Computed example of a mutant assay.
Amino acid sequence: MRAAVLEAHGEPLSIEDIDAPDPTPDGAVVEVEACGVCRSDWHGWQGDWGWLGLETQPGQILGHEPAGRVVAVGDEVEEVDEGDHVAIPFNLGDETCPRCQRGHSNICENVMPLGFIETVQGAFAEQVHVPVADHNLVTLPDGVSSVDMAGLGCRFMTSFHALAHRADIGAGDWVSIHGCGGIGLSAVHIADALGANVVAVDLKDDKLEKARDLGAVETVNAEDAANVSGEVQAITNGGANVSMDALGIATTCQNSVSSLDAHGQHIQVGLTTQDEQGMVSLPTDAMVMQEIEFIGSLGMPPTRYDEIFRMVSTGKLEPEKVVSETIGLEDVTDKLEAMTDFETVGIPVIDTF
């Protein structure tokens, strides 16, 4: 099969013919029909996240937003059949640890991050293997497109879990989203669907325009603003009720926290870069005085995907709106290079392998 293989950090991916995977006894092989190119792939391509034990090594196949058809299953698989149309969450669980047993497999004690470690190769390839298939594969509703659903592997479900499950959003609440990449734009759309008034913050006018298309009622260009958090506070008449850092740099994290009103909730979704290496200073005293909550959020348990599907079926959520373009496998490096300067708008999706 064809795959885009990492040879060295920051260097063009190598398009190679490699052996297709065989299913393990509890696993399944999925023929990839579409796979998003996410900023997390850029982090892997750059060699970030060594401080998390996730620094990619040569030979790694990236790609963690796939949708496609099951083409083979292991002998122990009971609930997944060949031909099933599925999405694959990026944070694969083992189903057996205490967290998985409590319904929190997104933070499995033995989490297997798709496309970031040698034992779980990614989906920038014609086929991808998924361990513990009965638990990790999510069957898609009838009639949906793999391209439209590719983001359910990461950006869309990550934003949904953060806002619908981790935050406490009420009708008419103000929600500020800092960083309008794929996750941030998904968050704008989801927060709007949940009844919030959304303020979108980014450096790029084209991304802010897309945010308005997806439901933002106000936008702030952080490059032009003298005080980003002050502008958000002015728009929201005192501060947002919920704010999300959807990028993961110190500036967006700090702006998000400082944008909040008293009793506000900051949701940290973006993981940091080489500059921060997981450590960001915060206005701790102000957070204490205003009783502000700092909440981490990672991925989403596959058992809760039906919530997204119900909202998709009624037209309240349209994941495809965040898809910006479809590309071929050989175009992935160009898109990763464009992400270095934040030049992509929305999510490019591979649909030709």
Results as ranks from 00 to 15, higher is better:
Thr284Asn: 10
Asn237Phe: 00
Asp81Trp: 14
Asp75Tyr: 13
Leu137Asn: 12
Ala133Tyr: 13
Leu137Asp: 09
Phe353Tyr: 15
Ser297Asp: 01
Val111Phe: 05
Asp206Ile: 03
Ser243Glu: 08
Ser186Gln: 12
Asn255Pro: 06
Leu163His: 01
Leu271Lys: 14
Gln46Arg: 15
Ala211His: 04
Leu13Gln: 14
Asp341Val: 04
His189Glu: 13
Val144Thr: 10
Gly195Thr: 03
Val70His: 01
Leu140Pro: 01
Thr314Glu: 10
Thr272Trp: 05
Gln274Gly: 10
Val128Asp: 11
Ala250Lys: 15
Ala193Met: 02
Ser145Gly: 10
Ile169Thr: 01
Met339Glu: 01
Val30Cys: 04
Pro66Lys: 11
Ile347Val: 05
Asp245His: 11
Ala125Gln: 07
Lys321Gln: 09
Leu260Cys: 07
Glu55Gly: 12
Thr219Ala: 08
Met149Glu: 05
Asp351Cys: 06
Asp148Thr: 09
Asn237Arg: 07
Thr314Arg: 15
Met157Pro: 01
Asp206Thr: 12
Leu208Cys: 00
Leu247Ala: 10
Leu140Ala: 12
Gly248Phe: 06
Gly153Asp: 02
Val198Lys: 09
Gly115His: 10
Asp41Tyr: 10
Leu185Ile: 08
Val280Ala: 04
Glu223Leu: 09
Ala3Asp: 02
Leu6His: 08
Gly122Trp: 02
Val77Cys: 03
Gly264Arg: 12
Met311His: 04
Cys100Met: 08
Glu16Gln: 14
Gly328Cys: 00
Gly315Tyr: 07
Ala8Pro: 05
Gln127Pro: 03
Glu95Arg: 15
His263Arg: 14
His85Ala: 05
Phe116Lys: 06
Ile347Ser: 00
Asn241Ser: 14
Val217Ser: 10
Ala4Gln: 11
Asp224Arg: 15
Ile61Tyr: 08
Arg69Pro: 03
Val130Ile: 11
Val188Ile: 05
His165Asp: 06
Met339Gly: 03
Val217Thr: 15
Pro113Ala: 10
Gly74Leu: 02
Arg2Pro: 03
Gly238Asp: 06
Pro141Ser: 09
Ile308Thr: 01
Ala246His: 09
Gly151Gln: 05
Gln277Asp: 07
Gly184Cys: 05
Gly238Thr: 14
Arg155Asp: 00
His104Gln: 15
Asp206Asn: 11
Glu118Cys: 03
Asp17Cys: 06
His129Ile: 07
Asn197Asp: 11
Ile249Asp: 07
Met311Cys: 00
Val269Ala: 04
Asn227Arg: 12
Pro98Ser: 08
Ser297Cys: 02
Asp206Glu: 13
Trp45Thr: 14
Glu126Gln: 13
Gly299Cys: 06
Ala226Gln: 12
Glu318Thr: 14
Ile295Ala: 02
Asp26Met: 10
Cys108Trp: 05
Glu276Asn: 13
Glu16Ala: 13
Ala191Gln: 01
Ala162Tyr: 01
Phe116Cys: 02
Asn227Ile: 07
Gly230Asp: 07
Glu337His: 12
